[in-house]
Design a protein around this nucleic acid. Sequence first.
DNA 1: ATTTGTAGAACGGTATACCATTTCAAGCTG
DNA 2: CAGCTTGAAATGGTATACCGTTCTACAAAT
Lengths: 217, 217
Amino acid sequence: MKIPPSSKRRADHASAVLRSRIIDGEVEPGVLLAESAVALELGVSRVPVREALFALERDGLVDFSESGRAYVTTLSSHDFKELYALRLALEPLGARLAAPRLRENAAALECNIQATRKAETIKDVTCLDLDFHELILEASDNSRLLKLWRSLRGELELWLGQLHRKHQANQLDTRNGTAGAHEEIIRCFRNATPKACEQLTRQHVQGWREWLPISDK
Amino acid sequence: MKIPPSSKRRADHASAVLRSRIIDGEVEPGVLLAESAVALELGVSRVPVREALFALERDGLVDFSESGRAYVTTLSSHDFKELYALRLALEPLGARLAAPRLRENAAALECNIQATRKAETIKDVTCLDLDFHELILEASDNSRLLKLWRSLRGELELWLGQLHRKHQANQLDTRNGTAGAHEEIIRCFRNATPKACEQLTRQHVQGWREWLPISDK
DNA sequence: ATTTGTAGAACGGTATACCATTTCAAGCTG
DNA sequence: CAGCTTGAAATGGTATACCGTTCTACAAAT
């Protein structure tokens, strides 16, 4: 739930606007994002828009056709499997690496859980959930691990957003389930070995994956 | 050892030229890559150069300062550790996923090994070695896994290139060692379970990491 | 009805020009 | 001599204009 305070660079602003539009489903997957049109609408020139589109491609939110046009990414269930296979590779590693640091100081994680309990929309819960996992990776002292994970986050948010929109009957109270699972993880960081943290994180990610209502079309 | 045939996009050309200069050590780490200067030298305008610099940043070959200037990446031994921790997370996973496909068809891998045996420079050996690992990930049917790995490859090449340049007395005949180890991996793909392939790949990557003469400054 | 041809619009790639910011060194001040 | 000031040069950010390519829709031909 972070809104960069209208960064100085217009490219960043354009990127942020487009990102949230895509994730919120305001623009449908497969839609063409023409530079000129976007530039006109955002009131900037094509140059920063180009930059924004490249950044979004890096995050998997737009795909470029061979001819250089940018389209909003369309995700399939196979894409979802790819993403989770990678979460399962990256996050347990991150947890193991972060364990020594989080053992002593898990304040940020605690704070995140409190916010989760108070969250009022399913979207906020999702965002805070991902934030929690990101916080762990931030403590892993492996900047590239964090970078790679972040490059997947946009697609995760897109996928989960689509899921929530489809199953309108969203149980907002994944809140407590999420918060509870995260508290168990914190306890593990405090008391157990790095190996145990790694293992619990693996189970947590795997468990969530199986929990989700995946339309395995 | 691939030279894109002067792609239509000048940005790609600029990117390729800069990439090879950085990896070959023609420009020292820490050097400023000013848009205007590069543009002037390559005979193109600043726009494609900008694009190239962004692409190189994604691959970790240049870093942007806060003010937006691009500098050639300087790698520390900590960076090397980060890279290998990630190889150890990604490549075994890739091997496991690729196993079913490679069991039947490992022609590309065979071909790579033959080329490795004939390689004439240490740089070629390194490149073919990385190609071998990349071929496995290409067979993993996880496009994002491949994408993430590729985003690390440039930094690996940069690091290894620096290492070779430092230890002039490079034993070119890592050739046979590499080829031999890779043949063992192919045999594993043909005869063993995906789990076994995963495990062997982990050992292979780990073994190489320990083999390298790391100046653990 | 399906396919092919074609003209015009849409779009991306690039060059160039202008402006704001940063950098850095010369010069001034204490 | 150290530290600060300042101003010119370097650099990046952005806008705009031009050109070639690609796309699309409509028309002609089979």
